[in-house]
Amino acid sequence: MGMFIEISVRDKEFLRTAAARALVDACPVEIFEPVDRRVRVNKDQEDECTLCGRCLEIAGDRIEIIKHYD
């Protein structure tokens, strides 16, 4: 888990869908990575999140970006 940012996936099943693949391309800092047939959040990268919100555009409220300092 990131020290400042946590990418919380509320709907874990979403990461198994084809739509979730778009997260991998959308995130500019490689927080989402493909593993087998699903997408996973790379916990080591979470603090690199630029808060661009592109993942939220794709996943809607199935993903939440938690700022631990907020």
């Binding site: 020290m3 400042f4 603090d47 690199e48 630029t50 808060l51």
Partner: peptide, 12 residues
């Protein structure tokens, strides 16, 4: 350069 990203790195 993003000020908040620098701040994260500095604190860490």
């Amino acid at each position: 350069t993003r000020a908040d990203l620098v701040a994260r790195g500095v604190i860490m």
